[in-house]
Write a protein that binds this DNA or RNA. Structure first.
Lengths: 153, 153
DNA sequence: ATATAAAAAGAATTATATTCATATTATTTA
DNA sequence: TAAATAATATGAATATAATTCTTTTTATAT
């Protein structure tokens, strides 16, 4: 797809603020809103615009994290000791030994991303044989094992 | 700010698609659109949502790139030879020697990001003393030196 | 120069956002 | 616990924006 100046302006504006109205874009470009809409639709169809997304401040969320941890392959079979080490860390809520490139899936809860970094630096780095750690923020838990949540009577 | 399940659902939906309507979110949550709007505004004010942004497929754009190139500091004073080397590469449109941590600002044009990678691997890597390359995509050029564009008569 | 296709404009319609008064639900605190 | 207060939600009215569609303009090809 060949993009002209108008397309590029639309892309720039929507990259800055994807909730901008057609009318605003149209005013900026001195054209009719309907013409802008047509171009935006085309940019979506041709996969030039791949997604509209809200950026979320990770520090604002009470961070629940999933850490995917992999070990040096020579060590990856007998990994129960490492799992035990991970389970000892107080911020770590769950430890799962998993199949695939990563050996563990670890659920961690920290107050902010600085404390997560501190945790990774201080605790995780002490555990031998860890090769890599990939983390991702949990925004919402739709279903959760609540067997430990004993309800009051 | 304390985020409840409703806030987290809003965040999840808007992270997936920031152009979703209040009405859609409201239906998903079984609440009134006005209540959703109030929460979204609060999430914006409290800086939980930091930006709404369109993701653009870099391969769809005819890639104009700016590369910020730095050299090993011992070499950075006499950098004219490196500048000449960069200027020889056919995809390189402009080379500017600049002040600061980086020594060069280079404008490159490639058809897609794969060819950019190939260029960086094959040509740039052959130039001695390069320490780092940071690239950024140029979406729009508002003003450009056109002294080389001789208009037809 | 004419025919054809693509893009834009403008008006009408539909949908959505926004506002605001009222109602409901939580949270304090006496 | 009950009343007082604050926070949040509802629902209707209004304002704003998106969308559709026909006509017009502009660009491209024959």
């Amino acid at each position: 797809m060949t993009l002209d100046k108008i397309d590029l302006t639309i892309l720039r504006l929507m990259q800055e603020n994807s909730r901008i109205s057609n009318i605003h874009i149209a005013k900026e470009l001195n054209m009719a809103p309907s013409a802008v809409l047509e171009r935006v639709k085309k940019l979506e169809q041709k996969n030039v615009i791949t997604q509209y997304s809200a950026k979320i401040n990770p520090n604002a969320v009470d961070l629940k994290l999933l850490a995917f941890i992999s070990m040096k392959s020579s060590q990856s079979l007998g990994c129960t000791t490492t799992a035990d080490e991970l389970a000892k860390i107080k911020e770590v809520q769950e430890v799962h030994v998993i199949a695939g490139d990563d050996c563990f899936l670890v659920k961690v809860r920290t107050a902010d991303s600085a404390s997560l970094m501190e945790l990774m630096r201080s605790s995780f780095s002490k555990i031998p044989n860890i090769l890599s750690i990939k983390t991702t923020i949990v925004l919402e838990t739709v279903k959760e094992d609540q067997s430990l949540n004993i309800p009051e009577l």
